[in-house]
Design a protein around this nucleic acid. Structure first.
Lengths: 109, 109
DNA sequence: TTTATTGTTCTACAACTATCGAACTTTAAT
DNA sequence: ATTAAAGTTCGATAGTTGTAGAACAATAAA
């Protein structure tokens, strides 16, 4: 069973978060994740890139501290670390997600 | 007299803004700029990098739509496009700047 | 036991990026 | 007319990154 390493709240950096969110594919993924209330398998979120590329992006998001990943069976379930991020960087992720929804990030991808 | 090209509000993208802010040197610059109320010459803001490197970063910030630059004499005066950004992406720049101040970005550089 | 599903890892590659020094431009000051 | 000041641009370089395919691992289903 695969386990993933996640940064503690202390280890999360603002520039790291911003960088992780600055890619259209990743931002789109995070945006979709925010819409789904509970954990979601990666495959449940549509994406234009190859499987391996998506795996790479999920790793970047995870290492930046934006998402949490755990495995269940063959699928890996991802969820946003919303509360932790809100506590560390109040308003940042929220406003970004709001802006992303309003301005349809998909067009930038 | 040198003039600079700035993107219109329509041309500013969320991922572009996030990417521009995701560099420690740039974020630090923007943070300093936010503290100074009016226009500031680049030289007024301390930076650990070479002149030419700073020039590069200012260009990135300008092309992302985050700052406005105009020349006066030999110096180029920069200012944040705060209102425009607030209107297009409400809360984004504000929360990032707040977080940057709280968590002392300098340490990430 | 096969076969299918889901995702990861490795390798490779093209594109981008942060950095600097040197040369240059423009304006201001002496 | 020199000299100084403030930035920009160019060239080079080392490192990072997004992308995909092939091979692999682990679990589930037939």
């Amino acid at each position: 069973m695969k386990t993933y390493q996640h940064p503690t709240t202390d280890q999360i950096t603002l520039t790291g978060v911003l960088h992780a969110l600055s890619d259209p594919v990743r931002l789109n993924f995070v945006q979709c994740l925010a819409k789904l209330t509970s954990e979601s398998p990666c495959g449940a979120i549509p994406s234009p890139v190859a499987k391996s590329t998506m795996s790479h992006h999920l790793r970047v998001l995870r290492e930046a501290g934006i998402i949490h990943i755990r495995t269940e069976g063959t699928q890996s379930l991802t969820s946003l670390r919303l509360h932790e991020l809100e506590e560390k960087f109040p308003g940042v992720l929220g406003s970004v997600l709001k802006a992303a929804t309003t301005y349809s990030i998909a067009e930038e991808a």
